[in-house]
Amino acid sequence: MNIPRVRISPAALGVILVLLVIQIYLFETILGAVLDGQRSVLPGAFGISLALTAIALFLAFRSTLTRGSKE
C-alpha cells in the first residue's frame, strides 16, 4: 500500500526552533521586568508571544498538508 509521506521541511523546523528561542528570551525578560514592578509591558509582550506561537503552531500543523520528498 502506498502511504503518502507527510513531513515538515527542515526550514520550517528551523524557524520553529528560532521562534522558541525568542520565546524563552522574551519570557525571561518579562519575568525580570515583572519582578522590577514594571507590569505595563505585559500586554505588549503577551501580544508578541501570541503572534510567535500562532506562527509556530501554523508551521507545525501545516506539515500535515505537505507532501515531503521520497526517502
Partner: peptide
C-alpha cells in the same frame, strides 16, 4: 518524527505564551 518534534516545540511556545498571560492576569505581585 520530525513533525511530532515540531508540534512539541510549538506547544512549548504556547506554554510560554500562557505563562505571560498568567503573569498579566495575576494581579498579586510575585
Amino acid at each position: 518524527s520530525r513533525r511530532e518534534f515540531a508540534r512539541f516545540l510549538a506547544l512549548v511556545s504556547a506554554g510560554f505564551t500562557t505563562g505571560i498571560g498568567f503573569l498579566w492576569m495575576w494581579k498579586k505581585p510575585l
